[in-house]
Design a protein around this nucleic acid. Structure first.
Lengths: 186, 186
DNA sequence: AATAAACTGGGACACCCGTACCACTTCTGG
DNA sequence: CCAGAAGTGGTACGGGTGTCCCAGTTTATT
């Protein structure tokens, strides 16, 4: 039988190929949104035959889910790195730097998680990770409601900036007053 | 030439048919998400032949855009009605009542607006409308940063509840402390 | 060295898509 | 009343999709 690993290939080359497909999927997701992540496009981007995608991933949904998970982890790492260097006030500047399309892809999948239980836990991972970053930056326990609440405004400001392309200085101003309010409550 | 109205048909029946197609599109959007809104599905749902969709709408994008606009207006009206009756504290209860799929459809299109300039102004209309509702409930001018900021946390809590299906009492608790904080700042 | 398993890649299947076409009927303004 | 515009609906086209199949090749195990 033509076996299907679907998880971790036993051979080295297979593992590399699988990873390659995954990053290709992430790239396509950021470029064209989630409709652009098709088997054929992914395979072509990775320089592999079409069948490789169905061989290493049982379905398009699984491929999308893993791409989402990878995207979440890398974005989380990026943001964490940024805040430990520049603090929460510097987040507005990261907004200016960040790859807008990448963020769009992430949010697309985030919302899509509402209709796909398999993605839901990844969505929660994203939210929890972001709250954690805010809490750490504030030297608060991860469960502190103040961190949670501050994150909610950061999140919306971020999303609005990405989607509606609101002027950066408005976002920055709102962010700083939100930070001031949070410190008053501390 | 077989003309194409694309905006407002001159005949009564045509106007009814167009509206019918639009609500069919909104329904499909809420049920199956954005990918479910196809010409064929919309036509079938409305009980009209396939060609009716291309006759009354120049493209699928236009159909989607108008469906989005309609969805935004009705949701805005619903929320406004709710808050004038129950105040902002009652929003958590509306969350329990609200049609989850409908909200998912709205957010799908909202994020999609990030890649489609035609949708972007509708997305802004959504945000501005929500901020306006919050400001009115607080008896603040629509431009008051406090209303704007309070809306940001409401928005994220709402979205998280819809997408991640977080427990309602957590959302409710966070919402009430957010409202308290806002009143302290007033 | 041989047997089984993993992997490869080309092709095919069945389906759904947006849109265009066009003969036809109904309506409406002059 | 009647030309021309508006509306109607069946059909077709070209293309992209996810998934499956299978003969062949490489790798790992006995």
């Amino acid at each position: 039988m033509t076996g299907n690993p679907q998880d971790t290939p036993t051979q080295e080359r297979g593992r590399r190929r699988r990873a390659h497909l995954l990053t290709a999927a992430v790239d396509l997701l950021t470029e064209g949104g989630f409709a652009a992540v098709t088997h054929r496009a992914v395979a072509q981007r990775a320089g592999l035959p079409l069948a490789a995608t169905t061989y290493y991933f049982t379905s398009r949904d699984q491929l999308l889910a893993e791409a989402f998970a990878q995207l979440v982890e890398t974005e989380l790492a990026t943001t964490r790195h940024w805040t430990t260097r520049h603090g929460l006030t510097g987040l507005a500047d990261q907004l200016a730097t960040a790859d807008r399309n990448r963020q769009l892809g992430l949010w697309e999948l985030y919302v899509h998680a509402g209709r796909d239980p398999a993605l839901q836990q990844i969505a929660r991972r994203w939210t929890d990770g972001c709250v954690r970053i805010v809490a750490d930056a504030l030297d608060l326990p991860a469960t502190d409601p103040r961190a949670r609440l501050l994150y909610t405004t950061i999140s919306t400001l971020w999303l609005e900036h990405i989607v509606e392309q609101r002027p950066l200085h408005d976002t920055r101003a709102l962010l700083t007053t939100a930070l001031e309010n949070a410190s008053h409550l501390a």
